[in-house]
Nucleic acid binder design. Structure first.
Lengths: 234, 234
DNA sequence: AGTGATTTGTTCGTATGTATT
DNA sequence: GAATACATACGAACAAATCAC
């Protein structure tokens, strides 16, 4: 057994290894809690904890009376981390700046918002080492974050500011590609028709939508990476 | 308390709600296990289980002696599900077909593979209702999946076939945008220079790389969507 | 159709260890 | 070093699901 973070963790890891390297194959039934209790010479609760964690992570499926089974490999999934700009720049040693190019209060158009309610519309250009890196168009529902009216977004970009002011929200992301039309191309210093990587994120909090943001990245300068593994640490 | 899946689950859900709706704010210390034990009139182990799960999900941070605290809202994360083509088509009621346009054994170029070892190179066109939907270029390390030599990929696309033959692998994904060069444009029936949404996925199993695939989607016809919420069920 | 046995699910109470203040 | 609060493990009991007869 590998880690000495405890017996349960060790059992968990060992069984995980057996599944990942194919010793225990999908669909195969694994020993019962009692058998494992004997094998590892520990309490049933300890085995149970290890198996419960494996089940939670989707490596095994448990059915009362029937037993525990190695799960079918999952549909491809990836955990995408969409970093904060400032953070990302810091990681790569670049200097990050942003500039608010438009700020206006408008009534909500038809769509996700309640039509007519007051929104704040922002256009923001993000730069890494003075080179345009992303173009942001954002709508914020003022009623959801009244403080936004007085925020100047000088030190922090709107996204970072919101993260601090609307904790623990839900979000929906959409990643797509597009060709740059004239306005965006000019802002990002690209030719018209250049490929863009686009991220749209809508964020909700407590049932109501808070913000709807569209980010456009020059294709050569940005990509999203994600690692999926059943072995995800922690 | 909401669900009657057990006391621990109910406590977990209630605390989650308090955090999500902002009653308990980031950084704030939450009651000790003993206090919660009293409040919910249950055993400390039951409370512990609920808190352990919340900690695992990242909603709280636990420090010995210091107590448990509401975590800072996470960096934006999204769980991206990259569906199987056949599956996706079935969901939208379209007819899915694929066609292998190239199949050849080549020695590995420098890169992720051990230079010179035998690989299978595949080009595959995916269609939804006869319209080109994705262009796939794939390398498979033959030593990792010997059975691939005899596979014809007539009924199943290479990706689906591999999923069944190499269970429980790890993968790394990269999403980017690009403009179509002549070859891909022709395959996908696009103009040269059209925007593409690109997905590169490298898959490992048991330490060794198994396959490296690049998928190109016409920008207008495909997007990735992902929902993130701290409230993720299960 | 029903009964009993098996297996997992949940909780309880207790004990001990460990990190931090 | 002492107190605190979390971390882990043990053993026991009963509940719930379901398989086999």
């Amino acid at each position: 057994m590998t880690r000495d973070q405890g017996i349960a963790a060790a059992i968990h890891d060992e069984i995980e290894r057996l599944i990942l390297n194919g010793t225990w194959k999908p669909g195969q039934r694994i020993p019962t809690e009692l058998e494992l209790t004997a094998r590892y010479d520990c309490a049933r609760m300890t085995v149970h904890k290890a198996l419960a964690r494996l089940a939670e992570r989707g490596l095994i499926v448990r059915r009362r009376r029937a037993g525990s089974f190695v799960a079918a490999p999952p549909a491809e999934q990836a955990v995408l981390t969409i970093g904060d700009f400032a953070e990302e720049a810091a990681r790569t040693g670049q200097r990050y700046t942003h500039e608010i190019l438009l700020r206006s209060e408008i009534p909500a158009p038809a769509g996700d918002f309640t039509t007519g309610e007051p929104l704040l519309l922002l256009h923001c250009l993000h730069r890494f080492d003075a080179v345009p890196a992303a173009w942001e168009e954002r709508l914020i529902r003022i009623a959801a974050v009244p403080a936004v009216r007085t925020a100047r977004f000088e030190r922090e970009a709107p996204g970072t500011w919101l993260l601090r002011h609307v904790p623990w929200s839900q979000a929906e992301h959409e990643i797509s590609a597009a060709t740059a039309e004239a306005g965006v191309a000019r802002r990002l210093n690209l030719r018209r028709g250049a490929a863009l990587l686009c991220l749209r994120r809508r964020t909700w909090h407590g049932g109501g939508i808070v913000t709807d943001v569209r980010l456009s990245f020059p294709a050569e300068r940005h990509r999203f990476t994600a690692r999926f593994s059943a072995t995800t640490e922690k």
